[in-house]
């Protein structure tokens, strides 16, 4: 897209006024990029048809910095919501997209974000069908915030619920943990830390769909451990079902460079955020087939069976350490913070 043709280089309050400048922004960027039969109606909302049960999920994205290794806030806003809908056992179809922009944002940056949103939506097989754009005064935002809401059709064979989980069920993850959080941290101001670690931000809906096609209701639960990481999500699950979770540290997939960075920064990878990871809790009779299907899919090459549900130690997550000792994995309290030494 050519910036000269737009007639403006930075976004200002007028672009959120609802007047001609807003129309200019919408016509030249939003409608042009995301054109589809629903959005092209340019109506106050979108009218769509969904077959059967519908899954809905909403999320707001406020990440700093907005550009990072392996992605930007735009694709994150699509992947995050697409994945949340998929975790419900649904096939994501439609997305609503709302921007809150701080005045002064460079149009070139906005265009990069919009292009990433388009690419991520296309790759995920979802349409942007309605949206909103607001501009706030400088200092009242942080460059750009994005809210997306996703709508999906629940897979006909899916029966996803924590209530279905039984003792003996197996826990799998689809790949290396802790990459997204490390990639973001390495770009934060104040951390003299450089790495080539990239965010794992990606859409997981097609792998989820393949798993549901193959195994149906033998899959008890999907969850994506974003903020709070794997440890916090497993702790939530243990509490929800009043059962225990038992893990082996040696089985947790952790890429070497991420492991080294966690050591250096004093972070526990069990609590670092992910954006391309999900866990599946499945009937023990299918654990090996689920693992094989995951590993044959491009979004699950490093999948692993990491643990199981147990009637021992209800409400607790216990992990066997590399040397054979045991620790509990408690939930993350606040943000993980760099250590003194």
């Amino acid at each position: 897209m050519n910036i000269e043709n737009l007639g403006f280089e930075t976004i200002n309050l007028g672009h959120g006024s609802g007047g001609e400048l807003t129309r200019n922004l919408l016509d030249k960027i939003i409608f042009k990029t995301f054109s589809n039969p629903f959005l092209d109606q340019k109506h106050d909302g979108a009218i769509v048809k969904i077959d059967g049960k519908m899954a809905i999920s909403t999320d707001s994205f406020v990440i700093t910095p907005i550009f990072f290794k392996g992605g930007n806030i735009g694709e994150l806003a699509i992947h995050g919501t697409v994945n949340d809908v998929a975790m419900c056992g649904a096939i994501p179809k439609y997305i609503s997209l709302a921007f809150i922009i701080e005045e002064g944002l460079q149009v070139s940056e906005f265009l990069k974000i919009v292009a990433s949103i388009k690419k991520a939506a296309d790759e995920s097989g979802v349409l942007i069908i309605t949206g909103d754009t607001k501009v706030v005064e400088r200092g009242k935002g942080d460059k750009i915030f994005i809210n997306t809401t996703g709508f999906g059709e629940v897979h006909p064979k899916a029966n996803i619920s924590v209530q279905n989980i039984k003792s003996g069920d197996k826990i799998l993850v689809n790949g290396f943990i802790a990459q997204h959080g490390l990639a973001i941290m390495s770009e934060r101001e104040g951390l003299e830390f450089e790495s080539t670690i990239e965010s794992d931000s990606t859409n997981l809906n097609f792998l989820v769909q393949d798993l549901l096609d193959a195994f149906g209701d033998k899959i008890k639960l999907f969850r994506d451990p974003t903020r709070g990481g794997l440890g916090t999500v497993l702790h939530e699950i243990a509490n929800d079902i009043s059962k225990g979770v038992f893990l082996k540290e040696i089985d947790i997939p952790l890429e070497k460079q991420v492991a080294a960075a966690c050591e250096m920064l004093g972070l526990d990878p069990m609590y670092v955020a992910n954006e391309g990871v999900f866990l599946a809790i499945v009937d023990p009779s299918i654990e090996n087939e689920v693992l094989a299907l995951m590993r044959n899919h491009k979004k699950g090459k490093n999948a692993a069976i990491v643990g199981e549900i147990t009637n021992e130690h209800p409400n607790k997550v216990v992990m066997q350490s590399l040397i054979g000792g045991k620790r509990i994995v408690s939930p993350l309290v606040g943000e993980q913070l760099p250590r003194i030494c």
Binding site: G266, H313, K316, V318, K326, R327, I328, S330, L337, R339, I340
Partner: peptide, 18 residues
């Protein structure tokens, strides 16, 4: 503190299991 003894016991100790 990430090096405090109470934090170590609260977060990791299996003494709280049984």
């Amino acid at each position: 503190s990430s090096e405090g003894a109470c934090a170590a016991y609260y977060h990791f100790s299996t003494n709280t299991i049984n």
